[in-house]
Structure formats: C-alpha cells, structure tokens
Nucleic acid binder design. Structure first.
Lengths: 196, 196
DNA sequence: CGCCGAGTTGAACTGAATCAAGAAACGTGG
DNA sequence: CCACGTTTCTTGATTCAGTTCAACTCGGCG
C-alpha cells in the first residue's frame, strides 16, 4: 500500500534491500493472476509485501461497480487495516492483476521488529507517514481536480502502472467511468495534435 | 489528524490521559480563532495535539476555492506531513476555527518516545494505522457515494463537528458546493416530512 | 472462424456547479 | 440593547462535466 522504493532514504542506501533482508524469514507465497488474498467479509490479519507482480485493493458498491483504492506493484506493502489491525471483517477485496509473489507478515512481527530494530522503527514510521501523505494528496485531488487533471497526475505519478493495467481500471482508480476516460484521452490527444 | 479518543483501547484504559501524560512536558500554545499555524510555502516540522478547540487542514485551488481535508477537534493530532516529515514546503493551510490550545511536538520527540516507551510505540502505530484506514474510507466514499450519501455519513460519523462549523465548511469537506449541500439538506427534510 | 473483453463513439440524460438575488443569523460598535 | 454591515444560508434559472445506455470496432485467442 505504500512505497518503499521512494525517495525516502535513511542512513542506509536502499530501503528495498533492507526490507527484503528483514522479511527474509517470513513466509513467501505465490499468488497467480486473478486470485484473491482478501474478500469482503474476511477478517484476516496479515500484511503483505509485494516482491513481484501487481495487486489491487478495491471495493464493490451496491450497483456492482468496482472502485480501486490502490495498486500495489513490487516494493509496496498492501493490507486491509480494518481486518489486519482491528480484526474486523473487511469491506474490501485484494486480488492479483499479474502472477505475483508476496511476503506474508503478521502485525505482531512488525511490532516486534520495531521494538528490536531501531532502523526498522524509523523506516516503518516514515513509510506510514508517507502513506498518509499520499492518501491526503489523493483526497485533495478528488476534491479539487477535474477528471482530466486527475488523469494527467496519474500518468505523471504512476507511468509504470499505466502500462500494466487495463484502461478501465485506471478510470476506476480516478473515480470516473471507462467511457469518460476514453473521452478525456481523446481530447488530450487532439490538444497535442494542435500544438504541432 | 487522527483520533485518540476512539475505540482503540490498549492495555491501559484511556489513551487520552496516557497521551496527555506523555506530552505534558511539551510546549503548550494558545491559538486564537482564525489564526494560522501553517500556510502554503511554510516548512515547519511540528506535530500538534489539540487539547481544546477545533482546527482545520485545507488547500486552496487556483480558483481560490478551499478544500477541507480534515477537521481536528480536541483529542486529535494534526500536522502537515509533507513539511513535518520530509521538510518540504507545504501545499496546505492549518488554522483555528475556535480559540484553541495545542501541544507542540517535534518529530524527534515522537521517535524518541517510540524508542523508550513500549506502550507509546504500540499506541502510535495503532493511531497511524487507524488514520490510514479513515483516509481510505473517505477515498472510497468520494469514489462511490453521492453527495447525499456522503453528507449522511458525515452526520453519522462527526455529529459533534457538524454543530461547530458553518455549513459551507461541511460542504467543502464533502467536496460539494454550499448551494448543493443546502439542496441536499432540503430534500432530506422533505423526505422525512413524508414519512410522518 | 467466431467469440469475448477492451476501448471508442454518439445521443440523451442527470447530478452538481455556477451565477445571481434575497433572506436569515450573527457580531460589533455606538 | 438596538442598528448596521457582513457572513451564512436558501432558492431559482441555467449550464456543464461526467454518466448512462447502446452500438460498433478492434485485437487476441480458443
């Protein structure tokens, strides 16, 4: 759910390698494309670190429409905090968009790590703070940006994900319909045409 | 920014008292209504705990329109993580909606506490996780709820805040115009009328 | 070859925004 | 304690961004 391969650098150079070392004795699991690690109603208290592949975290409303809250490619953590932290039943779904490999981590394991490992404590704190910052930015964009502006921001922020998921999922993430995104892209293409 | 007086209970009974004890030797400041502790462009690395009063965290877009990301009444923490954690210039504003009293906390102080105080470490972690959960729920609502549904959810979740802020700020938080909120409320009133 | 999911395009529709004008509530100073 | 200006809230008329529904294209794949 939050990046590790970001600009956040601690004393050591690559948080990524640090994380992998720290999690090396957790259980690794393979999750083939289209399979779930979480469905609505589950109460399963795990965090996952994505080593390979791409997952999505989403809800389904009463009309059956999906709303993607987050994509999680390699190097990201993903979990449903409602079930992982509070042991409540989840309202959300997590499944794999590509064949993936995950490290499964219990909340207790993280707490223990923060107690025993200074460096991890600070990294964990940074990651959580950064995740909050990212979510706030997204809320700010949902409150103040048009569909076009949100799309352009997505392209800039997640150019890699853009290429790995179908367009209708990007639309779902942006909070618009696939048709609308298609039109937004068309208009942008026309604008670029004119410039030349 | 995140609740302390929530259902999150640790071993001890009231997290609120625990927090107050822990922060008792931080600097307390008074912030009169309408005064700011953060403006766009500031890079000021502090967290605040609201002891009394009510603050808001918001952005202003190019058209001069305000977008409220969060209200912070007594018992909540508030900060701009972009400046508090990363020392970047902030894109947001924080000001007081009522005469308020705050405890000012440095990031270093929090890190030290998490190192030296087991109980605080776990509480801090819970609070951050819970804050993330709340932000995700808000994003989910912005993606899938109508204006009316979001308003009803707000009334249910923050009945206290509803009574303490002008209606146009609630509209701003919900991502609609004051005029729209007025109409939503009118329709709800008419519906309730019919029932009787 | 034929099917199916993804993307595009069009036409009609709608929820919410905008603009404008009044009414009500609020607080500040005389 | 009232009068006056300012802010807040409401209401109406109009517009617009984005939705909905439906038809069609395209590319992949059994």
């Amino acid at each position: 759910m939050f990046q590790t391969k970001s600009k956040i650098t601690l004393s050591s150079n690559t948080p990524d390698d640090f994380i992998k070392a720290i999690l090396s004795n957790c259980t690794s699991i393979k999750l083939p494309k289209s399979e779930f690690i979480l469905k609505r109603g589950d109460a399963q208290s795990k965090f996952y670190y994505v080593q390979k592949g791409l997952l999505r975290y989403y809800s389904i409303d009463e009309k059956g429409k999906e709303h993607i809250l987050q994509f999680a490619p390699e190097g990201w953590f993903i979990s449903d905090r409602q079930s992982a932290c509070l042991n409540l039943k989840s309202d959300f779904f997590i499944d794999a968009l590509e064949d993936s490999e995950l490290m499964m981590i219990s909340e207790a394991y993280i707490i223990n790590l923060t107690k025993s490992n200074q460096e991890f404590l600070e990294l964990n704190n940074k990651l959580l703070q950064n995740h909050i910052r990212q979510l706030q930015n997204r809320i700010n964009q949902l409150l103040s940006y048009t569909a076009e502006e949100r799309y352009l921001e997505f392209v800039k922020t997640y150019p890699d994900i853009l290429l790995r998921v179908p367009q209708w999922m990007v639309a779902s993430y942006l909070g618009i319909t696939p048709e609308s995104l298609s039109r937004v892209r068309k208009e942008l293409a026309e604008k670029n045409q004119k410039k030349k």
